[in-house]
């Protein structure tokens, strides 16, 4: 028996909205410690990693490890049927071929339940090594979203250059060039609005904006986003999922032709 109840059900809605355009299907691995997901996009350029700790749920029970293959656009459609303030419970029996979703309004006057078919998926899990990154930038997630959107007007790629002074995002194309520089915040009165650069070594890397724009769909999940970079390795774009865990996107760099 698997059951996970989340009073802040809107987190599920936001999480699905964050990944459903990048991934068509994925396995939710449920165990006694929580729910994890790892999946590559269809082009194998990026990878999504989700971790939700059992402690972060209001009720959590998982008697046997369970791998639920889910068609994400379908789950997203069902999640859209939940109100923003609803409590969401996900349930499955062992060896089930369906998952149940129960949406309760805060005042308990409305309860909806949906059942969705699971799918057979055979995906490979990649080992992601623990890495010390040369640069870690924390910034408002809305700012990151805005920068990716704006620079997409100019080109397909963004060059991210990080030094101890700050971080610079640049794009160029037929119509010209654009540069957006963010300096490290002088004061950190409002933690959510701060730009913080933690740098061991300056880096300059190129990434496809198309993917960063997909990642930025996670903006409603968290006020801050964290970018971790080292030379010649994938960028990590991390959004915290409240007290539950994290949503991380890994993006392979582009190299000069």
């Amino acid at each position: 028996m698997f059951e996970a109840r989340l009073v802040q059900g809107s987190l599920w809605k936001k999480l699905l909205e964050s990944i459903k355009d990048l991934l068509n299907e994925a396995i939710f691995d449920c165990s006694s410690t929580g729910i994890t997901l790892q999946a590559m996009d269809s082009s194998h350029v990026s990878l999504v990693s989700i971790s939700m700790n059992s402690d972060g749920f209001d009720t959590y029970r998982c008697d046997r490890n369970l791998s639920m293959g889910i068609h994400l656009p379908s789950l997203s459609k069902i999640m859209k049927c939940a109100g923003n303030d609803d409590i969401i419970t996900m349930k499955a029996t062992d060896d089930a071929d369906t998952v149940s979703l129960v949406f309760e309004s805060q005042n308990n006057e409305k309860v909806s339940d949906y059942e969705m078919k699971l799918i057979d998926l055979d995906t490979e899990h990649l080992g992601i090594p623990e890495t010390e990154y040369s640069c870690v930038v924390k910034m408002p997630s809305s700012e990151f979203q805005r920068i990716c959107r704006d620079l997409s007007q100019l080109g397909d790629s963004v060059v991210i250059a990080c030094t101890k002074e700050g971080v610079k995002f640049s794009a160029s194309g037929e119509l010209g060039t654009g540069n957006i520089k963010l300096c490290q915040s002088a004061s950190t009165d409002k933690e959510e609005e701060a730009v913080v650069v933690d740098m061991n070594e300056a880096v300059c890397l190129t990434f496809a904006l198309r993917y960063l724009n997909f990642f930025a769909k996670a903006t409603p999940l968290s006020a801050q986003v964290q970018l971790s970079m080292s030379k010649d390795v994938p960028l990590v774009v991390e959004y915290k999922i409240s007290e539950l865990g994290f949503l991380r996107f890994y993006l392979a760099p582009k190299i000069e032709d």
Binding site: H125, G127, Y250
Partner: peptide
């Protein structure tokens, strides 16, 4: 295309 690397070339399959 255009020098885009694959994520699977960085992370190993166990």
């Amino acid at each position: 295309p255009h020098g885009q690397m694959k994520i699977s070339s960085f992370f190993s399959s166990p």
